[in-house]
Amino acid sequence: MSQQINLFNAGFKRKKNYATTRAMATGLGALVLVLTVASVLANIELATLEREAAVVKAELAAREARRIAVTSTFVAPRKSEALQQELDQTGVQYRNLQQVAAILDQGEPGATRGYSAYFRAFARRGIDGLWLTGVTIQGSGEAIGLQGRALKASLLPGYLNGLAGEAVLRGKTFGQLQMTEPKAPPKAAAADGVSAPEPAAAPRYVEFSLQSAAAGEQAKVEQP
């Protein structure tokens, strides 16, 4: 007679922990979901950055194209030789005028007040019916000559008295005076069968020449 002996002990049987397995599965699922969402967000942000980079790149390309277009169309102006010569001549004339102005203002070597003071004095003492046609000043004003015309000879004394009141002419005397009346032009010869035209009337003014004492003495010395 055989007998079966049950050696299985239920206490030694490995028990399955279903709660731990479910937790692990849930954790893995959540991790996968988080990674998926993070990947999607990263892809979206990367796409946004790529679009912004493309816009910036396109703008830079457009600016570079405009710069190249402007540079290619710009032509440096050629230097005009004629214009340069004209500018050089103008500069020379300007410097010459400056030198003339300096000479008129300073006078010759030895002059201390210049010639402009004399011309201002002559202009201030001008009177109606008398005008100057020439002025000569030698050195620092020690010799002065005036040439002019007057409608009446009686205007000369008043003019000389006015000049004597100018500071620049104070102490100077005009020791030589010459006055002449212009002559009428000669009568034109009559042609055959044609009466001669009436001669023109003599000018109604007198010409005068004034020389300072120093100028008159110098003129006498220069005469042979």
Rank of each mutant, 00 (worst) to 15 (best):
I68N: 11
G110L: 06
Q84K: 09
W131H: 13
K79D: 15
Y94T: 13
A42I: 01
A47I: 00
V56I: 07
L87K: 07
A62H: 04
Q89I: 08
R95Q: 15
P77S: 01
G91H: 15
N96S: 13
E50F: 01
Y118D: 04
R67S: 14
F119N: 00
R63C: 09
G110Q: 05
G107R: 06
R66D: 05
R66W: 02
I103L: 15
T136D: 07
D88Q: 13
G126T: 12
F122L: 12
L35W: 00
G126H: 10
L130R: 03
L104P: 02
A38Q: 11
Q106P: 05
G129H: 03
N43D: 07
Q93M: 13
R78V: 14
F119Y: 11
E50R: 09
Y94Q: 10
L41P: 00
S39P: 00
Q84D: 15
V32R: 00
L132S: 06
A38M: 12
F74N: 07
R78E: 12
L83R: 12
E64F: 03
D88N: 15
K57D: 11
V135F: 09
R125T: 13
V92L: 15
R95F: 14
V56A: 09
L33W: 01
L97Y: 08
T48W: 12
I68T: 12
T36Y: 02
I68Q: 15
V70A: 10
Q84V: 09
E108K: 14
V92P: 13
T36E: 01
D128S: 12
E50T: 12
Q89G: 09
E59F: 01
V55M: 05
V34N: 01
G129W: 03
E59S: 01
I137E: 02
Q84N: 13
S116R: 14
L87M: 14
A111Y: 09
E81N: 15
A65K: 07
I44M: 13
L132M: 10
L46T: 12
L104V: 12
N43L: 09
S72C: 02
L130F: 11
V34Y: 01
A47R: 05
Q99D: 10
G114R: 08
T112I: 06
F119I: 03
V92E: 15
I68L: 13
V100A: 14
G114H: 05
R120C: 08
V34E: 01
P109H: 10
V55D: 06
E50C: 04
E45A: 08
L83M: 08
L35V: 00
A101K: 12
L87V: 08
G126W: 09
R124G: 04
A53C: 05
N43F: 10
S116W: 08
A58R: 00
R120M: 08
P109L: 09
E64R: 06
L35H: 00
N96G: 11
E45M: 14
Q84E: 14
I44W: 14
A123I: 07
A65F: 03
T71W: 06
T90M: 10
T90L: 08
L60I: 05
V70Y: 07
R67V: 14
Q99E: 06
F119M: 03
Q93K: 13
A117N: 14
S72P: 02
T90N: 10
A54Y: 04
A65T: 11
T71S: 12
V75K: 03
A82C: 03
R95V: 15
R63N: 07
Y118C: 05
E52Y: 02
T36G: 08
R67L: 13
I127T: 14
I137D: 04
Q98M: 08
